[in-house]
Amino acid sequence: MSWFPLLSAAALLFSLAAAAAPHRQRGAKSPEPVAAPSYASREDAQALARTIAAAQGLDPDWVQRALAQARFQASVTRLVMPPPAGIAKNWAAYRARMVDAARAAEGLRFWQAHERWLNQAESRWGVPPEMVVAIVGVETYYGRIRGGFRVLDALATLSLDFPSGRSDRSGFYRDELAAFLSWCHAEQRDPTSVKGSYAGAIGLPQFMPSSIRRYAIDGDGDGHIDLEYNPADVISSVARYFAEFGWERGLPTHYGVQVPADTSARATLLAPDIQPSFSAQRMSELGAVLDEAGRAHAGPLALVELQNGDAAPSYVAGTRNFWVVTRYNWSSYYAMAVIDLAREIKRLRPPPPPSSASTPLQ
């Protein structure tokens, strides 16, 4: 998945406002009316149905009937376009929208309501509860913003009528359409009943269909994977997703850093983008000043730049775990928003009660 593994509500907000890019629909308009053009009589849709059926081992008639119910959505072709050129990114503005008191308070309630599943996920995959909770908060505001498009319509539109004016991603969406139909068949779901984002992302964590097939998990053992309404499945799936991309238990996501004054050295550090590529010693040799914990870090680091419009950029030294968060949505701004929201939610959590163990006799 070479664009976003998850096309999220947060990603859409970032790309459209860019005042501030899978997961992650505030800017999305309402879906097209039901009377939108049907794909039932289009030969290319019928050919795609045959291809999907053969590739996924599905009944060709079932796939044909499903795709015949898809309808072209003009708003989807507009929303998938990139933001206008020349709009400066602004981390401070983006953070203010994503990391606020109301969202953090809702995150705390989500944590308290589903603590059992969060603890089990941390025990199994090593992902802290606050990180899982923050993902759900940034993606869909704990289910408030799931997207109102029929996923079948969105994926069919982007598979068969991908708009010109940007790099052609129709192949990606055909694969997602195939994964979606395969999942619906396995779960005995009506493909027309599933709602999601303009790009086909589904449920509280906004998983694309291929991510559901690869990473989603039946968290409570009821025999189904439900990312729309089952918190056990949502929590387990997000934690597993992080683990599959290499989340390291107990590793911080980033450290504080002062960038080198020398522009050439700074460019060298920024060249790999968010891919951890430099040891703490090498960063120091290039003039970066890490905080105490960063200087003691044994693994590779990345210098992450967060632009602030006309103001000076912000910088952090990202670890492997920072890079893992960006696998959910390939944006350092998104990753930092998730991390900061996680920190705020954890800060609100009451401290554990003191140990009730009695003092041993002397």
Rank of each mutant, 00 (worst) to 15 (best):
P276T: 13
N90Q: 15
P350F: 12
Y39K: 00
A271Y: 13
A239E: 07
A93Y: 06
Q56A: 11
A92V: 15
Q206C: 04
R347N: 02
T326W: 03
A312R: 12
R282G: 01
E248N: 01
A54D: 07
L290W: 08
M1D: 10
F172G: 00
S314G: 08
H114A: 04
D220N: 12
A40F: 10
A47G: 01
S284R: 02
Y333H: 15
R347E: 05
R124P: 08
A232K: 09
S356A: 10
G137C: 09
Q69H: 13
A216I: 15
P252D: 05
Y229V: 00
V194S: 09
S182F: 10
Y94G: 09
D161W: 00
R282S: 10
H224V: 10
N90K: 07
I235P: 04
R169Q: 15
V138Q: 13
H297Y: 13
I339R: 11
E115I: 08
A101E: 08
V136T: 14
A53C: 00
G287H: 11
R78T: 01
Q69G: 05
T319E: 11
A88E: 09
V63H: 14
Q120M: 12
P313R: 09
A271V: 06
A312S: 10
G148P: 02
P83Q: 07
L341Y: 04
L13N: 07
Y255V: 01
I202A: 12
Q25P: 09
G219V: 14
T319K: 00
R174K: 11
G287T: 13
E344D: 13
W323F: 15
P272Q: 06
A201R: 12
V99H: 13
A35R: 13
I339F: 03
D310C: 00
P360Q: 04
D233E: 10
F14E: 11
T77F: 06
L290A: 08
S279L: 08
R174Y: 03
V324L: 11
A85E: 15
P5I: 08
F242P: 04
T359L: 03
G171P: 02
S355M: 09
A35G: 03
P209Q: 04
A19C: 06
D262K: 10
S15M: 05
C184N: 04
D61H: 13
I145P: 03
F207Q: 04
Q362C: 05
A312D: 11
S236L: 14
A47Q: 02
R144C: 04
Y142A: 12
A36C: 10
A45P: 01
A101C: 03
A20M: 06
A201E: 05
D226W: 15
G148Y: 09
R124G: 12
S355N: 04
A239Y: 11
V234I: 15
G250L: 03
V63K: 14
V304E: 02
A70I: 13
R320T: 13
A28C: 13
H254T: 03
S332K: 01
E305W: 06
A17H: 06
M131N: 07
Q188M: 01
